[in-house]
Design a binder for these strands. Structure first.
Length: 299
DNA sequence: GTCCAGGTGTTCC
DNA sequence: GGAACACATGGA
């Protein structure tokens, strides 16, 4: 695929999707819908892709990867803040994926107060136990599709809890029932408009503003949706309010007005930049109550 | 042992 | 209205 500037690793490993695995040779393997897929960055703005099932014209994969977005044009819509510029230039070509809305919703219900590596484990177990077998090339370990809502609804809450998701089992099961019964149609959210789609999502148990915005951004095509999690909260405080201490509600209001029509893309850059920067020599925590840097990037 | 994780719902003032 | 707390689980 001709992809232009595309940072494959940052895109697939920035907490948007939870089923991609990097092979020793640098290629990424995953499952999209019922298809096993492999993707490699071969340089020159090109991605080498392979699938087990008949891929047709690859339009489904182009859409998933967002290769037809123009990251340079999108970045031009961002406010000209030096802090944001630095985050963007740290991972040029970081894209926002367009995932299946049900898979995205279910995955992020499992995400609350969990580390990304643990979310991957729980999602993997969920697919293994309740998904359908997917055809893979010979020699590869078996793969499964993401379970349908009906499968999780009929499995029951206790069976879901067996996938080590703890208190989130009740939320996931209740939401699966909503979707399986037709009370919520995740595929329809992209046509409702942002406020209505967000309200529909937040009517699900265990889905608040943050998880709703993740689903809206990563699967429903609303590039202005701006999920504020603990990392983005830190980023906003330290980059934009180093001396004051605005509460989360105030920061949410700021995020809605400051970052523009592609705010969600800016958010993903801030999230990935701060999360990867924090992997540094430890013992920086608990530096005191003053919010002037907190250790991040103090030159 | 203690703290924290791509939060949310409930309870209390 | 907003702050405080409970909720499972596992790794640092």
């Amino acid at each position: 695929l001709d992809a232009g500037e595309y940072h494959l690793a940052a895109t697939l490993d920035s907490g948007q999707a939870f089923r991609w695995v990097r092979r020793a040779d640098g290629a990424w393997e995953g499952v999209i819908g019922r298809r096993w897929v492999e993707i490699s960055d071969i340089g020159g703005g090109r991605l080498e892709v392979g699938a087990q099932e008949d891929p047709g014209d690859w339009g489904w994969l182009r859409a998933y990867l967002g290769v037809d977005d123009d990251p340079v044009a999108i970045a031009r819509t961002f406010p000209p803040d030096p802090q944001l510029r630095e985050a963007v230039s740290a991972f040029p070509g970081l894209r926002v994926l367009r995932q299946d809305p049900w898979e995205c919703l279910a995955s992020f219900i499992l995400s609350s107060t969990k580390r990304i590596v643990q979310i991957r484990q729980v999602v993997g177990m969920l697919c293994e136990r309740f998904g359908e077998v997917v055809d893979v090339p010979s020699g590869h370990h078996p793969e499964h599709s993401f379970p349908k809502a009906a499968a999780l609804a009929s499995a029951g809450e206790d069976a879901l809890r067996g996938c080590r998701m703890g208190f989130r089992a009740r939320y996931l099961h209740a939401t699966a029932v909503r979707v399986a019964s037709g009370a919520l149609d995740p595929d329809r959210l992209s046509r409702l408009g942002l406020p209505l789609a967000r309200a529909e999502l937040m009517a699900c148990p265990g889905v608040g503003r943050k998880i709703a915005d993740c689903v809206l951004l990563f699967s429903c095509g609303y590039p202005a949706a701006f999920p504020v999690d603990v990392w983005v909260l830190r980023a906003l405080r330290e980059l934009y309010f180093p001396t004051r201490r605005p509460n989360p509600a105030r920061l949410l209001a700021f995020s809605e007005s400051h970052f523009g029509p592609y705010g969600g893309h800016a958010q993903q850059h801030l999230f990935h930049y701060f999360r990867t920067r924090s992997v540094r020599p430890a013992s920086v925590r608990r530096t005191g109550g003053v919010a002037s840097g907190g250790g991040f990037g103090a030159a």
